[in-house]
């Protein structure tokens, strides 16, 4: 900083530490709750310091019967479903957006602008506003209770296409010209030049889309009636309802913890790429 004032520095760190505490408090309390036994978690005031039941709760949550009084899929299966759905959404979205952005930027063809606008307009249509008719379409296609039904309707949003279009537009024209002089055809150029050049953007987008996919709530809730297809995020709601009868907060909070660890892990481990992708391309 410009000047060196110990007091100002102290205040700065103090505010930041308080901010971190405020932001982290809910997560900390979740962690604490997941580390005590059921009996301790039914007595007010609840503990603020972790107990010694973390592994017991983890084992019971992952492989046990789950919450008493509910009929849910085992948590490990829900985790798997979430992972599979998140991967399908993020990889599928990246794949088709790369292709369509490539076509829109690097080819001149009839109806190019029509295609662009048709894709672009989906930027404005979050799944929440067209939920009923989309549900009908998926039902008619027989995709209820399937991984396809969970992921495909969420795949084709324009955000990723739009972002790759921006990225491709910043690739110097000379790359293409040079490749053409070198004799590379369109797909060869795509694989050899364009994809390697967009590596960091692809990685950043993967983080964003993985979180988007993992955190889906309303859509999976609607189209999965079969408990074996439930995702971990949507299961929280059932658990909260069950908690009103039999509060097993240690198990509920352990489930919540398990539901947030994978996306948090992805964000933290790919922090640099993710921040770059978020702040440079989301605008």
């Amino acid at each position: 900083m410009v000047e060196n004032r110990p007091l100002a520095d102290f205040i700065t760190h103090l505010v930041l530490v308080l901010g971190v505490v405020a932001i982290a408090l809910p997560i900390w309390i979740t962690f604490v709750a997941a580390s005590h036994d059921e009996i301790r978690m039914a007595q007010a005031p609840l503990p603020l310091w972790p107990g010694d039941q973390l592994w017991v709760n983890l084992k019971q949550t992952l492989f046990g019967e789950g919450l008493s009084g509910t009929e849910t899929a085992p948590v490990w299966l829900m985790l798997f479903n979430s992972l599979f759905m998140a991967l399908m959404i993020s990889l599928g979205k990246i794949g088709i957006s790369l292709l369509s952005a490539f076509a829109i930027v690097y080819f001149k063809f009839p109806f190019r602008m029509a295609c662009f606008w048709m894709i672009f307009i989906t930027l404005m249509l979050p799944v929440e506003v067209r939920i009923l008719p989309t549900f009908e379409v998926v039902a008619n296609l027989g995709m209820l209770n399937s991984y396809w039904g969970l992921s495909i309707p969420l795949i084709a949003s324009a955000t990723a296409t739009f972002m790759f279009r921006q990225v491709f537009l910043t690739v110097p024209d000379e790359m293409l010209e040079s490749a053409r002089i070198d004799g590379a055809g369109p797909m060869r150029f795509f694989w050899d030049i364009l994809l390697p050049l967009s590596r960091t953007n692809i990685a950043a987008l993967f983080v964003i889309l993985f979180i988007f996919g993992w955190n889906q709530y309303l859509w999976p809730l609607l189209i999965t009636t079969d408990t074996s297809m439930t995702t971990i995020v949507m299961s929280i709601k059932q658990m909260l309802e069950a908690a009103e009868q039999s509060p097993q907060w240690n198990i509920i909070m352990m489930t919540a913890l398990l539901a947030m660890i994978p996306p948090i892990f992805v964000v933290i481990s790919m922090q640099k790429l993710f921040v770059q992708g978020l702040t440079e391309t989301d605008k």
């Binding site: 000379e174 790359m175 010209e177 040079s178 002089i181 050899d192 390697p196 050049l197």
Partner: peptide
């Protein structure tokens, strides 16, 4: 033909 570009157009990842 072969061409040398103003900004060289070297493939940055190779």
């Amino acid at each position: 033909i072969a061409m040398v570009f103003q900004n060289y157009a070297l493939y940055p990842h190779m």
